[in-house]
């Protein structure tokens, strides 16, 4: 009697999670399935979860003239990998410096950083300074610099580095290692979990970011994937421009709805597909964030 009730309530919980998981996954399947539908079916019957006819014309269209997509990929990769590398370098160095007992400016520098966490200039003053003083408007280098140093990241690194046994660093110091050598040869190799977490969150954040591009970039050459997708979805003009550069396939209606979704799959698909493999680092990052610095 008791046993059977036990099974019942667990079953309900499993059922709940199966439904919840489907709710999270099915929308992606919908996007993929639309991209493989034929334009005729979409126009006549609307989007559906199962394509009536399997059709690759949207993809064929894109691959005939993939310039926009390739350019978007290059910009996004540049931003994701270049920007994240610079970010990890600068915050790990600063975090290391203030984790050292010998550091004399620990306190003032900590306050200097703490202020940036609570006081913000806001979007508009930031935009004016960036464009008029630093000339970063429509400048591809801004993808590298943006988000290079965050106070929060530096504090997490400091906390993590402080946990590394001091004797390791001291013995290296006795052997004549410089601070930079100690950081790269001892501290960083011992901090793989926190570095991995920040690297993955950094890459993902830059991969998903459309706002930097939307605020600062006007030249289509500087558009990243997300902004390109946003333009395709929202601006008929952009879609038309995109299609004009593509040679139309013979005797086929130019797909426009399915083309949007095929672009979306090609631009966002790889990251969504890779995500489950890196998932644990993000979950860890959540918990790292909960630790009081």
């Amino acid at each position: 009697m008791k046993k059977s009730r036990f099974i019942n309530y667990k079953t309900f919980i499993h059922l709940f999670f199966i439904l919840y998981a489907l709710l999270c996954i099915v929308p992606f399947l919908l996007v993929v399935s639309i991209s493989f539908s034929s334009e005729y079916d979409v126009v006549n019957y609307g989007f559906s979860l199962i394509p009536k006819h399997f059709d690759l014309s949207a993809y064929k269209q894109i691959f005939k003239a993939p310039d926009t997509l390739v350019n978007g990929y290059l910009v996004t990769l540049f931003s994701a990998f270049g920007g994240t590398t610079l970010n990890i370098l600068s915050v790990s160095m600063a975090g290391y410096a203030i984790s050292r007992d010998t550091c004399a400016f620990k306190k003032p520098f900590t306050i200097y950083m703490l202020i940036t966490m609570f006081v913000h200039g806001g979007l508009i003053p930031g935009y004016i300074i960036d464009t008029t003083v630093f000339h970063l408007g429509d400048n591809i280098l801004y993808y590298l610099i943006n988000g290079m140093a965050g106070a929060y990241q530096i504090f997490v690194f400091r906390t993590f580095f402080s946990g590394i046994p001091k004797s390791l660093i001291e013995s290296a110091q006795l052997d004549g290692a410089t601070e930079l050598q100690m950081l790269f040869k001892i501290t960083i190799p011992l901090s793989k979990p926190v570095i991995a977490t920040f690297t993955f969150t950094g890459i993902l954040g830059r991969w998903n970011d459309y706002s930097l591009c939307m605020y600062y970039m006007t030249d289509p050459k500087n558009y990243n994937l997300q902004y390109m997708l946003q333009q395709i979805l929202n601006e008929a003009q952009f879609l038309k421009m995109l299609k004009d550069t593509m040679p139309a396939l013979e005797d086929v209606v130019v797909p426009s709805e399915t083309l949007k979704f095929a672009m979306c799959v090609l631009a966002a698909g790889p990251m969504v597909a890779l995500f489950p493999f890196f998932q644990k680092y993000f979950a860890k990052g959540m918990v790292v964030g909960a630790v009081k610095g």
Binding site: A94, C103, A104, F105, T116, H120, P125, G126
Partner: peptide
């Protein structure tokens, strides 16, 4: 402390340019 200060420099300059200057902006 000179090497340590140099290590903090990139972060410090970044914060000055992109956090403090907009604050005064």
């Amino acid at each position: 402390n000179i090497p340590l200060a140099i290590m903090c420099l990139p972060a410090a300059i970044y914060m000055f340019c992109f956090c403090y200057m907009p604050m005064f902006g």
